[in-house]
Write a protein that binds this DNA or RNA. Structure first.
Lengths: 235, 235
DNA sequence: GCAAAAGTGTTAAACGTACACCCATGA
DNA sequence: TCATGGGTGTACGTTTAACACTTTTGC
């Protein structure tokens, strides 16, 4: 074990750090893009608004920690998540030095465990009106939004924010919310339908109009087949 | 100090981790995009090729650690660097569990401290022929290249890989190397010159042809002024 | 019958792409 | 004089952006 001794010594005198993950949880409700935040019932910064976070555990990958933290708040698994990056300013957490890996998640805001979320003091806040959050969480949120915009413009990930069946007007207002700009109805539909990754159903959603809008469904099989062939999807 | 006690307890039972930074150092030489790698003279994986890395120190931000590590190898400061993300698989380092924040850097491959680099066993390796590296370094490299492509397509960052004075043929072959595709000479020049962020000099580079190619210079002032006005730059 | 949202095509402008020849110079 | 890389403009096709009216239906 002489070799292992050598390896161990290599690491031995290095500093070790607390590592957290913070989740930027996006939802879409009432034509608005929103964040699921928590009002902290614990120190530091008790009473203030923050992202849902948690510490990385031994034996757990950072991705797994992010999934666990999301699940602790929402009960959800297999959610679309992407890393934003790690935030490592020395004084970012006034309590102790903690590094934090930020992840954003896209959830369907009708379909999560509300009791669980309530038990963490969770609140939905519109993206266009985000208040001051603790630490560097506002920066994380803005970087997540930027990354979401970029990603949404090149891959059809918006579906993760909608129920399984959704209408084209819904989809459009979602993309308007993500991109922060209004889109032309005809151009939007033309582009979306040209992608040919949707299945139109016979059902209509009459909650928003007398006429009703047809429900569509995202067709994963068609989408995956097209991706195999190198197709690209820009909204 | 009762309040501080409460805060301290909050962190006390959490795990702590070794954190490293790894640098993906791009250079451009002989019409090829290259990486500056090191052949390790220390464990673990002694003798193998890897990215230049180092451990995060107490009291040092992660960004600062990345800059320090780059400087330890190249002697350079104030270099264009961007974080790729943090890599946190449990077994990514076979010696001990170490998290690693990956950064890419763009340097001018004529203008760094070669003795210093030699002392670390540094070697330039063409991007199109990257051998097996230790740990997850190949993944880091591929993600860095992807991010470089995306970034280079939307912001004129390529200049960081060239000397202060460069010719348009040089610039074109750089972008061809970054993007991994050949570009049309006339279209490239049209686009580049339309940006109006260059200053043509009267000097010529005659090292590649008898006629010689005019040297240009990136005009930071013009560029910054245009960015202020919301201009975008896509190559 | 009317209010309110859903649905539908065409046209012009901008942009990207393909393409071929002359120029300047040192050897 | 010729070989080599530097430099230049145009025409076509594709993509994007602007734009207004008809349809459905519950009240």
């Amino acid at each position: 074990m002489v070799e292992n001794e050598g390896v161990r010594n290599y690491y031995e005198n290095k500093d070790r750090f607390y590592v957290a993950v913070d989740c930027i949880i996006f939802g879409f409700h009432e034509d608005e893009l929103k964040l699921l935040l928590i009002r902290r019932r614990f120190d530091p910064c008790i009473g203030e608004l923050s992202l849902m976070g948690g510490f990385l555990n031994k034996g757990e990958s950072i991705d797994a920690a992010a999934e666990r933290v999301l699940q602790e708040l929402t009960g959800l698994e297999n959610v679309f998540m992407e890393q934003i990056g790690i935030f490592g300013e020395v004084d970012r957490d006034p309590g102790e030095r903690v590094l934090s890996a930020a992840y954003y998640a896209l959830i369907n805001s009708d379909d999560y465990n509300k009791e669980l979320a309530d038990s963490h003091n969770a609140v939905w806040v519109p993206m266009n009106d985000i208040p001051a959050l603790i630490f560097d969480h506002n920066i994380m949120v803005m970087m997540a939004w930027k990354q979401l915009k970029r990603k949404a413009a090149v891959e059809p990930i918006g579906f993760n924010l909608l129920p399984q069946y959704f209408t084209l007007p819904q989809l459009q207002s979602l993309y308007e919310a993500i991109l922060g700009e209004t889109l032309d109805k005809r151009n939007f539909r033309k582009k979306v339908l040209a992608m040919d990754i949707f299945e139109k159903t016979e059902e209509k959603d009459k909650s928003n109009s007398k006429r009703g809008a047809f429900y569509y469904r995202f067709d994963y099989d068609k989408y995956n087949a097209l991706v195999q062939n190198g197709s690209h999807f820009a909204l």
